[in-house]
Amino acid sequence: MGKLTNLISGLAGAVVLNILHESLKNKDSGMPRIDRMGEEALQKSLGYLGTGIEDQHNLYLATLAGDIAGNAVYYSLIGGRNSLIWPKAITLGLAAGIGAVTLPKPMGLDPKPIARNEKATALTIAYYLTGALATAAVLKLFNKHL
C-alpha cells in the first residue's frame, strides 16, 4: 500500500474520530471535550508566537482542522504490511487515547476536559481507538480492491 492510500485511510479514521466526538460531546456534562483541549493547546502554541485567535468560532474551526490533519497523519502510520494492520491499529489507537488523557498535565494543559472523570477518560481512549480501527478497515478495503 502506498503513502497516499495510507493517508486517505488515516483521514477516514480522523473523520470518524471527530464525528464521534462532535456527535456526543454535548450529550451530558460528563462527556469528553477533546475540542476544548485542542483549543487550549492551539491558543498556547500561538501565544508563543505572540498571537492568538480571538473569535471563538474561528478558534473552533482552526482546532478542528488541525485535529483532523494531525490525526490523519498519525493514523496513516497504521498502513504497511497487510498482516500487521489490525495489531498496529489497536496499538496506535490505544497509545493515542492513553496519551490524550495522560499527557496534557505534563504539557502544561488542563486535563479536565478529557479526563475529569472515569467516563470521560474511558470514552476519550475509546474514541481514538475507534478512529484507528476505522483506518484499519479502510486500509483493508483498499487492499482488497487494489
Rank of each mutant, 00 (worst) to 15 (best):
E40Y: 03
R116V: 09
G79F: 08
T135Y: 06
R33S: 14
A136N: 05
K105C: 07
N71M: 11
D55V: 03
K112G: 12
A122L: 12
F142V: 04
D67S: 13
L17F: 14
G131R: 04
I68S: 01
T5N: 12
Y48C: 04
V16Q: 04
G47W: 00
A41E: 01
T121P: 11
I19C: 01
L103W: 10
L42S: 02
K119W: 07
P32E: 11
A132Q: 09
N71K: 13
M1Q: 10
V101C: 08
G108C: 05
T130M: 08
E40T: 04
N18F: 00
V15N: 02
R33Q: 14
K105D: 12
R36V: 11
G66R: 00
V138C: 09
M107R: 08
T135C: 11
R81G: 07
V15F: 03
Q43P: 02
V15W: 02
G79S: 05
Y127H: 14
I114V: 15
A72K: 02
T130Y: 00
E22H: 09
G93D: 09
K88Q: 10
S45G: 10
N143D: 15
N117P: 15
A96H: 11
V15H: 01
A126W: 03
L84C: 02
G47Q: 03
V16T: 14
N18I: 02
S23L: 01
A62E: 06
R116N: 14
T124S: 13
S9F: 02
K25M: 13
L94F: 15
P106L: 07
K88T: 09
E39Y: 00
P32N: 08
I78P: 09
L46K: 01
L20H: 07
T102D: 08
G30K: 14
A41H: 05
L109W: 04
H21I: 00
G66T: 00
M37Y: 03
L84E: 13
I114P: 14
A62S: 15
N82P: 03
E54F: 06
G38T: 02
T51E: 03
A120N: 12
V138P: 14
L64N: 04
D55L: 04
G97V: 07
S9E: 00
E22F: 10
G38L: 06
E54T: 12
L77A: 15
K44P: 00
I68N: 01
L64E: 08
I98M: 13
L64K: 07
A72Y: 01
L61C: 05
G70V: 04
A62P: 05
